[in-house]
Simulated assay, not measured.
Amino acid sequence: MYKNLAARGRSALMAACFFTPLVTHQAALAAPATPPVKAAFVYVAPITEAGWVRQHEQGRLAVEAALGDRVKTTYVQDVPEGADAERVIRDLAQQGHQIIFTPSFGYTEPTLKVAREFPQVKFESITGYKTAANVAVANARYYEGRYLAGIAAGRMSKSHVAGYVAGFPIPEVLQGLNAFMLGMRSVDPQASVKVVWLNAWFDPPRERDAAMTLMNQGADVLAFHTGSSAVMAAAQERGKLAVAYHSDMRKVAPQAQILAVTHEWGAYYTARVKAVAEGNWKPTALWGGVREGMIRVGDFGPQVPQAVQNEVLARQKDMAAGRLQPFKAGAQPVRDNQGHTVIEPGQALSDEQILNLNWLVEGVQGSLR
């Protein structure tokens, strides 16, 4: 009996010695890994099926898909610019988020103010223009896609008149509006664009009303720089054509959509969160376009002939290769709609000039208000 007990004791000791390394290894595997990066996103409008906010939400989802348990994301939607934005951004910083993305031009100053209070937090001011030690800025060259969309609109319009529903007369919007006009006139010298300013980014009823007004004034092709798909729906209802912005909107306007100008944020957002995780985040300033994969046109509607599709895609390749610049004059100067020369023959605007653009190009019927 004692012999058996001793044998059992030796066996237990041997078993313990044998399994100890395995148990230790398993414990090591189970030990908490580096905590995930907490990333937050603030959206200026509700998340809808398409539009400005949808594209940034797609970017957030891309971060989760790429980084898995290395990141934990959250978002707050429908946050007005101004005091509400400052309150929400501050609250997210207080909750321990290490990086906060604020994708709206009107979030620029609230972001900078909160960033000064939380120097350990990284902020990404999307469409902003002011950096700080812990504030990066990034934007896309939307105007490149607008120029390409203008080519398609110029080919498709029968009235030679396009309508443009615009949010605010800030440089980013003016860049897109002017590039659209230049794209149209590159294939249709008779083309003109009528613009309606809303002084709002997201107001579907007013967006729709503006679209209806423009179509009543002879526009048979519409474009817009606002946050919803209301303009697309209006064009579909009236049997007109429209250029989708931010997202593919064929679900809303299956017959009306000419093409979509889309912006892609997933790769950028993922890289920035990864930089925080790896401790090498810097307050960079990026302005990416077709070449960088941040802007693309495509998602053509059924009414667009293959020849037009091929032409637009060929020009997109030229743009990616640097052979096509929307704000470069040919043999003739580019003039504003007051008759003043704004680009000399053979010259191109610098990035600084584009970023501070404050005029409407010849052919645009409207003013900066």
Rank of each mutant, 00 (worst) to 15 (best):
L5S: 04
A6F: 12
A15R: 04
A16T: 15
C17A: 15
F19N: 09
V23Q: 14
L29W: 13
L29T: 11
T34L: 14
T34S: 13
P36W: 08
A39T: 03
A40H: 02
Y43L: 11
G51I: 00
E57W: 07
E64A: 05
E64M: 07
A65P: 10
G68I: 14
R70I: 06
T73P: 02
V88M: 01
I89Y: 00
A93C: 11
G96W: 06
I99M: 06
T102N: 04
T108W: 05
E109K: 10
K113I: 07
F118V: 06
Q120P: 15
E124A: 00
S125T: 15
I126H: 05
A132P: 10
A133V: 12
N134H: 13
V137C: 09
A140H: 04
R141H: 01
R146I: 12
A149G: 08
A153K: 11
G154S: 04
R155C: 07
M156H: 05
S159D: 11
Y164N: 05
A166K: 01
L174M: 05
A179D: 07
L182H: 01
M184P: 06
S186N: 03
S186M: 01
S192D: 08
V196T: 11
W201T: 10
D203V: 08
P204H: 01
R206H: 11
E207L: 06
A210N: 08
A211D: 14
N216V: 13
D220L: 03
D220E: 04
F224L: 14
R238D: 09
K240N: 14
L241C: 11
L241F: 15
V243S: 03
M249A: 05
V252A: 05
E264T: 13
G266M: 02
Y269D: 06
G279D: 02
T284S: 14
G288N: 10
V290I: 03
E292D: 08
G293N: 10
G293C: 13
M294F: 10
M294H: 10
V297Q: 00
F300Y: 05
P305V: 09
V308P: 00
E311M: 11
L313M: 07
A314N: 12
R315S: 14
K317E: 12
R323W: 11
Q325K: 09
K328G: 02
G330F: 07
G330E: 10
A331K: 15
A331Q: 12
A331I: 08
V334M: 04
V334W: 01
R335M: 06
D336N: 04
H340N: 13
T341R: 09
E344P: 02
A348D: 08
D351N: 08
E352P: 04
V364F: 05
V364R: 02
L368P: 03
